[in-house]
Each structure stands twice: as C-alpha cells, then as structure tokens.
Design a protein around this nucleic acid. Sequence first.
DNA 1: CCCTGATTCGC
DNA 2: GCGAATCAGG
Length: 168
Amino acid sequence: MTELSWTDERVERLKTLWAEGLSASQIAAELSGVTRNAVIGKVHRLGLSGRAKPQNQVAGARPRKAREPSHPMRPAAPITIGNLAVKAEPEAAPEAKAKDAPVPEVVAFERATILTLTEQTCKWPIGDPSRDDFFFCGRRSDVGIPYCAHHARIAYQPAHDRRQRKAS
DNA sequence: CCCTGATTCGC
DNA sequence: GCGAATCAGG
C-alpha cells in the first residue's frame, strides 16, 4: 500500500519533524516518495512556516520577509582551529518535544576567542562564527577533550543518521 | 558548489 | 491541492 499522498499520518509526521527543526530535505528523505519541494510546499499550505507561529497577524498585512532572525546561539558547522578539529554538535537533541520548560541553560561562558583557546579550553562555539560577537564556551576541559563536561555531553548524545539524500 | 526555505505557476 | 521549477539567501 503505497498511497502517495498527504495522509493524516504523513502530515502529522511532517508537522512533527518540521517542528523539531529538521530541514525540508531531511524530512523529504524521511518520508519516502516526496521531494523537499513537496515538503516545503505542503508546509506552506499548512500554514507552517519559519517554525514560528505568532498567533496574531494583522489582517491585510503581508510580511513577505517573516523569516526567523537566525538562531541566537547554535553550533553549526565543524570548525578547524590550527590543527585542532572541532566538531560542532550533530543535532541539538529535542529536549522534550516542546512540552516541558525550555530550560534556559544559562552557563557561565568564558567568552574564549581563538586566541585564548588552549588544550584545556572548551571549544564549543557560541553564536554565529561569521559574526563578531562569536566566541567559544571557554570553560575548562580535560586535556585531549575539546569540550567542557557540559558540552561534551551534548556533543555525544545523538545517534541519529545523517540522512542527506540526493534527489535526481 | 553545497545547502536552506519561499514563491510561482502549470497541472 | 500538489510539487517542479524557480528564486533568493547563506
């Protein structure tokens, strides 16, 4: 039974995955038989977009660029510092499906910069590396370990597969 | 060039 | 309603 259409179940998964922050292509790879375009198209038709739903919308207003102001803090791509290869965390683990408290997790960062990184400095990236307000966690880490205990945990968590399919 | 989502428009 | 093609950005 390979009904190729947006059944309730499929739409549900789409919503869930989208809400979890998976990219359209990843979702497309997850749901067989659909391309990322299809996913995006459906997402828009469903009214989901940007993953942010400001319940109120001025009638008539058409905020073309209602995009998210980027993530305030998110490790993304791997970073290479000298001969130290720093891997950004694979995927932030969805705490509890937006159910419990968001958990502020405000830690005392040391605002380390590349110049102040040492073998014992946590190299967890904070912010957007392309911005000037970017810095590293900087707390003390064990020798040989790129992250402090806190971030090492996060970095190791997931066992998810990097599903990056290529459509033809 | 890789990727991302947004929008358009023929079906 | 659907999604490929296209567009715009990183």
